[in-house]
Nucleic acid binder design. Structure first.
Lengths: 346, 346
DNA sequence: TATCCTTACGGAATTCGTAAGCATG
DNA sequence: CATGCTTACGAATTCCGTAAGGATA
């Protein structure tokens, strides 16, 4: 048994049992892949794959129970490598963050500026996609951290931690009848076409729930995966936009008016950060978690067992309150950009 | 990185960092061991061992954090092998039980008769030793199951499950003044020299505690690791023996009288069964656990997470009540010896 | 001096990749 | 007939063990 064999099998599982693809993905010959897999099967005296003629078509029962063990083996091997990198150069390396547009564009900028001042030798890579993709990338080991509001909570194979809570707000162009209009109700908003997120994205479920609760059936004229698109169409006068609070607070332009009090219509959403279960992270990854979720202590993040307990016990910071924290934090690192954050009215 | 390298490192940790010993233990040359270890260190670009001149004298910090990962890797590799054996021939293989004399001689005989009728193709090996040794053998992966009363509870790296509870009784030769003497008190017993277990063995702590509570300072004339030795000296008239209940109930000879009611003097002890954390066991091993601790369900035993909860929630069977269970159980397996069990009076 | 790790080096075993064979859809 | 797994076989690499070298207690 060797790691190469295990890698081939995992890759086969991730590539529709197509050994040709596996070979090209791992830059080797498919004959080698085929042989190594057969060799492992012979050594263990089980068949892992069901073959029809000369094609792999399924996992055997034995293969099905071996798969998670193989997964863990490769995971631990990865951990050993990461662990050693930690000692070679603790503050140098790569950090891959899988996240959604909303987080990447409206939350992470400030965070990553601070982070990269603290760890100038760490190359940060942002991988952007749907919450579902974020989950997949974590599970496949293609990303170190995942940040999203949807889809990652309670996912098997992941450990997730709440970072902060936030609300949706309604935005309109300046001069719109609802602009600055105190006492606006959700019913008033529902009179206009709505432009908001696609289902599955950025707390969309909370938006739907709010209308449902009020017995309203709004005309969702356009749904987009990111707030920039939503803003574009709102600016064109196509309707009222409903976006995450941080879009308005952290966005660079002030081309919009928020509908006063509109945040109260929608239940708060919680942005979570997740890591693959059993994965060992570099110290700077833990530091980034700490920046994003200052209420968690490192032991909680590293220990798998206590997660459930802590999730209940720890009070979440609302998004707005985080500004202070971030700035205070930054002061501890002299090189950090210390300009005051924008504090848009919600 | 390969498994051989990891095995060498683990063996080094278990052999005082003496690579010569490692080589002979693993039937290879020490030059090979040395080279493989250096090769892994080079690949990971860390030093795992502190060398003084040409001698390994300690683990580096990096080595200290790598060690548990290496341990897990080898554990999972073991698991993969076991898992495959499971599919090759589910009911054939080997089962190594580490246990103490008391369990081996007075509890396991009935259990193993039943077990080996059910699994005639499983070779059972009993490894006998002190409770501390039982723990070590489990942690080193040299035994599949550990059964003892002491030392295994709450040990890091082990998962333990209570099997049944039992009490100590006082035994005397027939014709002894206390034989059949109703109303005997602990004070009466303490008048005589006591012959019982060595500290650390078979619930000895409960015996000491009972005398302590009663403000008595008995003359422990002789302490032995096993009940057979105790019985020998009791028979010679050297004093009153205090032994585990099953010694009297399951022992073959009736050369002794128990002091009526003496079981009530001592707090009950609980025999536990333990397995190494993260170890995957063969199906028959789980079956043996089930025979020994019928109140546990298999999911509880296999799942690491729920152990703590179940330990509280599940009611323990007292030892005496287990006779019935064992017999009922046996009936489900026609080949099993069905003769009624001895039911000695306690 | 006895013990013990490292290095050197030749032989053995394993792994790898090209090419050909053959089964499937 | 295009795709895809298997087998064969020679080349490259890696692994292993003997033997010699050097360091420690």
């Amino acid at each position: 048994m060797n790691f190469q064999q295990l890698r081939y099998i995992r890759a086969a599982l991730q590539n529709d049992l197509n050994l040709t693809k596996v070979a090209s993905e791992l830059f080797t010959s498919q004959s080698g892949v085929s042989k190594q897999i057969k060799e492992l099967e012979a050594e263990l005296r089980i068949e892992i794959f069901v073959r029809r003629g000369k094609r792999l078509v399924d996992l055997t029962e034995a293969g099905r129970s071996a798969a998670p063990v193989i997964e863990r083996l490769l995971q631990e091997a990865e951990n050993l490598k990461r662990l050693s990198e930690q000692f070679v150069q603790a503050d140098k390396g790569r950090l891959i963050i899988a996240t959604t547009h909303n987080q990447a564009n409206y939350v992470l900028p400030q965070v990553l500026v601070s982070f990269s001042h603290e760890f100038p030798e760490v190359d940060v890579e942002l991988r952007q996609g749907s919450p579902g993709l974020v989950v997949d990338m974590l599970l496949r080991g293609e990303a170190d951290l995942g940040i999203a509001t949807e889809a990652i909570d309670g996912k098997a194979g992941l450990r997730s931690f709440p970072c902060f809570s936030w609300e949706h707000v309604a935005i309109v162009p300046h001069g719109h009848p609802l602009a600055g209009q105190e006492g606006t109700t959700l019913t008033d908003i529902a009179e206009y076409p709505i432009i908001t997120y696609t289902p599955e994205f950025t707390g969309r479920s909370n938006i739907d729930a709010a209308f449902e609760r009020a017995g309203l059936h709004p005309d969702i004229r356009l749904a987009a995966v990111d707030a920039d698109v939503i803003k574009t169409y709102v600016q064109l006068g196509m309707g009222v936009g409903i976006v995450a609070q941080m879009v308005v607070e952290n966005g660079s332009d002030q081309a919009f008016a928020t509908v006063p009090g509109s945040n109260r219509f929608f239940a708060p959403s919680t942005t979570k950060i997740a890591i693959a279960e059993g994965a060992l992270l570099r110290n700077y990854a833990y530091r980034l978690i700490q920046i994003l979720a200052p209420h968690l202590d490192e032991r909680t993040v590293k220990g798998a067992r206590q997660v459930e307990a802590s999730r209940e016990a720890t009070a979440l910071l609302p998004f707005a309150a985080r500004h202070d924290l971030r700035i205070r934090d930054a002061r501890r690192h002299p090189a950090i950009d210390n300009r005051p954050q924008k504090t848009a009215a919600v």
